[in-house]
């Protein structure tokens, strides 16, 4: 048995695939690549595939991480080299490694995620200068608490302070025609977790710059486990 960990990009039209679509796609791609899949026991044997952090529909990524359990080791370099025969355009395998050292089981991938880094692009209703946007962002972050409304598991609307979940939030650039790019580093663990969409909705309610959230586009740059990229864990 061997656990293959892969890092891949999800770009182009592939951003429109849901997490469930990705599960199906990976299983089929591994079959096409003739990977020796290990199956779960029981009545309905499934291949063992785990993702570090599901990605929402519409979000692109440079750094998705997943693991698949194989019955034996394979040639990773060959898999990467011939990936275009098995994976659709827009799913790009970047790196692969075996993570099962003898006598040591793989750390639970999803459970180790602590934070994610995003690039955020949005078009403002007007063209603002770099200074205006920066002051506005600073004021937003200087608040004692940043409250949002969330629907909890019991379908009740609750107030939640998201400020502690924001590790960093900054302007990257101001482009033409009101287009701006931000970066955010947000908690993504089981204890504390913040979606970039929710952050942007909170920002949208803050007086100052007016955005058109229909134009919000997200790109995940990194998934972290502590101070490491989860792939390197």
């Amino acid at each position: 048995m061997a656990i293959l960990r892969l890092k891949y990009r999800k770009v182009g039209y592939m951003k429109f695939l849901s997490h469930l679509d990705m599960v199906r796609l990976m299983e089929r791609s591994f079959r096409r690549a003739q990977m020796p899949l290990e199956f779960s026991q029981g009545f309905n044997p499934r291949p063992k595939i785990n993702f570090a952090a599901p990605l929402s529909v519409g979000v692109t990524s440079d750094a998705e991480v997943m693991e698949v359990v194989l019955t034996k080791k394979v040639d990773i370099a060959a898999l990467l080299e011939h990936q275009r025969e098995a994976f659709p355009a827009g799913i790009e395998l970047v790196a692969g490694t075996f993570v099962d050292q003898v006598g040591q089981s793989s750390p639970k991938l999803m459970g180790s995620v602590s934070s994610c880094q995003y690039l955020i692009s949005v078009i403002n209703k007007d063209t603002y200068s770099k200074e205006v946007v920066e002051t506005w962002l600073n004021d937003f972050m200087k608040q004692d608490a940043i409250m949002i409304e969330k629907v909890n598991k019991k379908k009740k609307v609750v107030q939640k302070d998201i400020k502690p979940a924001i590790r960093s939030f900054a302007l990257v650039s101001v482009e033409l025609e009101g287009h701006m790019v931000l970066s955010a580093h947000l908690d993504a663990g089981s204890e504390s977790n913040l979606r970039a969409e929710d952050l942007m909705h909170a920002l949208d309610g803050f007086p100052g710059v007016e955005m058109d959230l229909e134009t919000l586009r997200l790109h995940r740059q990194k998934i972290n486990a502590g101070d490491k990229d989860i792939y390197d864990l």
Partner: peptide
């Protein structure tokens, strides 16, 4: 690309399948 963000199941319209 913009309208695909606004519809249900955008992957119906993207092509590019294996």
């Amino acid at each position: 690309d913009d309208i695909l963000y606004l519809v249900e199941k955008p992957a119906r319209y993207i092509g590019g399948e294996i």
